[in-house]
């Protein structure tokens, strides 16, 4: 199974004005910070709001979902004693809000799935993209991941001692993938694997590398901070290394030392 990366970007690389990327004011004003962050990254990644029309697959991944709206809804539930609940944070707090909002921007009713599987969410979405491509579908696939850090989430993670080792993190990463190689392809996603046990760097290299110059990116939260879909940032870094001339990059997601995931990214030649 394989597919091709046409473009990949993070929320920090978005330069276009939000009102241009999300022209519908009614949609925009209901979006929380993470939804704006993720949808704007998705739209800029596909090349503008009109380009959503050409997508036949929208796959999003998140570990925490729209956390701020979920917290707002739950706080409301307690303070209002389960009465008089605002509809907006409830509607917008679902995990598939981002995928839905991207589709709604242009009323695109294509295959649209959100993966919520803690630290493996991004890899699961990517696996779906690879299977779509292998199945003869996925001519234009948008695949992305997002998570936001809120003050309460930060407090919980701090009390768990996570920030003694890693810094906190959040972000959105979106990639435009195709089943077939095009003149704009910058890298190939050559495979994905979920080994049953943790591996060290030498074992990862021995098992997955096909070139002696292959680099391994270890997603241990040191790249983008500590959050579930940080491996999408490592994938972004892998594509960057390919663009700089590395023939192959292995992204090893050592999420909490258990059930790792491996993404193999290759130069398209």
């Amino acid at each position: 199974m394989r597919c091709f990366v046409q473009r990949v970007m993070t929320d920090r690389e978005v330069t276009t004005d939000l009102k241009q990327l999300i022209p519908d004011a009614a949609m925009r004003r209901r979006m929380s910070r993470v939804v704006k962050m993720a949808v704007s990254t998705a739209v800029e990644c596909v090349g503008g709001v009109e380009q959503i029309d050409g997508l036949d697959t929208i796959l999003t991944a998140t570990g925490w979902g729209c956390l701020a709206d979920s917290e707002r809804f739950l706080r409301n539930l307690i303070s209002e004693q389960e009465q008089l609940l605002n509809p907006t944070p409830f509607i917008q707090s679902t995990f598939n809000t981002v995928g839905g909002q991207v589709a709604l921007l242009r009323h695109n009713h294509c295959y649209n799935v959100t993966y919520v599987h803690r630290g493996h969410s991004f890899e699961d979405a990517l696996l779906d993209a690879l299977m779509r491509a292998a199945d003869g579908q996925g001519a234009q696939m948008l695949v992305g991941a997002f998570d936001e850090m809120t003050p309460s989430q930060h407090r919980i993670m701090e009390r768990m001692g996570l920030f003694r080792t890693w810094k906190d993190g959040e972000g959105a990463v979106f990639a435009l993938l195709t089943a077939c190689q095009t003149e704009h392809s910058v890298a190939e996603v050559a495979g994905i694997d979920f080994p049953s046990e943790g591996l060290d760097a030498a074992a990862v290299h021995a098992r997955y590398a096909t070139d002696e110059r292959t680099k391994v990116i270890w997603n241990d939260w040191s790249i983008a901070g500590c959050y579930p879909t940080a491996s999408a940032q490592a994938f972004r870094k892998a594509v960057e290394l390919i663009e700089q001339g590395t023939p192959e990059v292995i992204v090893y997601n050592a999420y909490q030392e258990a059930s790792p995931a491996v993404i193999r990214v290759r130069w398209v030649g």
């Binding site: 004011a25 009614a26 209901r30 008089l84 609940l85 605002n86 509809p87 907006t88 509607i91």
Partner: peptide, 12 residues
Amino acid sequence: GLDSIDALEIIL
């Protein structure tokens, strides 16, 4: 240009 979701918010 409000819509039905806004109507629910106004009720609240």
